[in-house]
Design a binder for these strands. Structure first.
Lengths: 237, 237
DNA sequence: ACTTGTGAAGATTTTCACAGCC
DNA sequence: GGCTGTGAAAATCTTCACAAGT
């Protein structure tokens, strides 16, 4: 149980260097969006950017952006904005993107193959070092620049490639058992695309992406748009 | 009894069994998880389920489950649990899954093709009715049971298939322009996999899935585990 | 005994609004 | 003038704890 700690970050008496250690989760996910925008701006040579502009490109409010950035420290200039290069560097640092991340993808079905070739990983510093599957017909084939390995060798592959992240792109039925093996092998950062809730030890970090869920959430909103009059009617009219 | 003025919008007067209209967003996304579990239970013949069991399979707390379900009304039986079949139906109804959703996928690259063949869509009542691309080499090929169409015909295809949802699986550079065309064609439920923030009119519903973002969030947590409080050991870097 | 349903409390997140600096 | 940084307020979400029903 976590009892203790406190609000997000209250720089107690930290003086220099490292800003804060624990960022609010909602802030972390938005930081990735800001980072993307900053890198695009950097590529086109922009020098500074306002919280308003960042907010627009991330689809959030500008006060929200300023609050998020304030957790990293004060890197803006009043009346001007934020220095693009500097802020980009600060965010990358806060997110831990200065490490080298070696990603192994388990499951070379349609999704696994798509992920293996997804350019967005490479370009953001994630190195796909292995692609594994259980299907005899797929093992040994080449996907992109990778040769599909046998999931039976999972542990050996994780060790030899020194993978420190694993992406699970496999059916719900085998996800938990593969996940357990990954955890036992010492990897504690896992991104799962399997449509099932996985159980992992406390210290393991697991995130989930579920595409069917996303469509269902859309369906909910779509339907409530289509029949809103039922309860709107009697107010202003 | 319910019907108090609770957090979400309340329904003035309701004749049929329809519960409240506006569910908290966080609740909506969990409902999809419960629904998945319920359908699995249904398939194996379970009659009832407790909030504790649902909580476990969704990875949340049981009080959370009960609160979520209470927004739909009181469909549980104290001392027993929830009737699986009934609750499944209620959730599906609340989520708008009783409509027919016809999905067009734009972009037949690696990801688009993976999505087109993703069994999870079909099995949840989402009918993939079209797959479009701009690449001459891809147009006309068959993916699964679909023939890839030309994105130039987007508007015509959306109309003839009566698609009411669109999945964007294309590069950031063209996402906004295709998105605009989709909106103009009258579709207002869009799921985007493009790593860019899209701008849509107020009435359009847009959701985003970004795989690189997920890895970055993992990276943040992994790093903060590795160096929780400054200094740990400076082995690698 | 068992489990739901729910006010109330607690925690987190967003938004406001304005002081402070350029 | 413009824009950041931030306490404080508001809104949202989660958890607690127990009354109520079976």
């Amino acid at each position: 149980m976590r009892s203790g700690v406190l609000s997000p970050v209250q720089t107690p008496d930290e003086s220099t260097a490292e800003p804060a250690r624990q960022l609010p989760p909602a802030t972390v996910s938005r930081l990735t969006l800001y980072l993307r925008t900053l890198n695009a701006l950097l590529a086109e040579g922009a020098e500074s950017v306002s919280s308003e502009a960042l907010a627009e490109s991330a689809g959030v409010g500008s006060a929200n952006v300023r609050k998020d950035l304030s957790y990293l420290g004060s890197y803006g200039t009043r009346g001007v904005g934020y220095d693009v290069a500097n802020l980009s560097r600060k965010i990358a640092q806060a997110l831990g993107l200065t490490h080298e991340w070696r990603v192994a993808i388990v499951g070379a079905g349609n999704l696994g193959r798509a992920l293996a070739r997804y350019a967005g990983f490479e370009s953001r510093g994630f190195d796909v070092v292995a692609l594994l599957d259980a299907d005899e017909l797929i093992i040994g084939t080449e996907i992109g620049w990778l040769r599909v390995g046998d999931v039976a060798q999972l542990e050996a592959v994780l060790e030899s490639t020194r993978a420190n992240m694993v992406v699970l792109a496999l059916p719900a039925s085998v996800a938990q058992s593969v996940c357990d093996r990954v955890v036992d092998a010492g990897v504690h950062s896992i991104l799962s695309f399997a449509p099932v809730a996985l159980t992992v030890p406390e210290h393991v970090n697991l995130r989930k992406v579920d595409m069917a869920t996303e469509l269902q959430i859309l369906a909910y909103h779509a339907q409530s748009l289509q029949a809103p009059e039922l309860n709107q009617e009697r107010s202003g009219a």
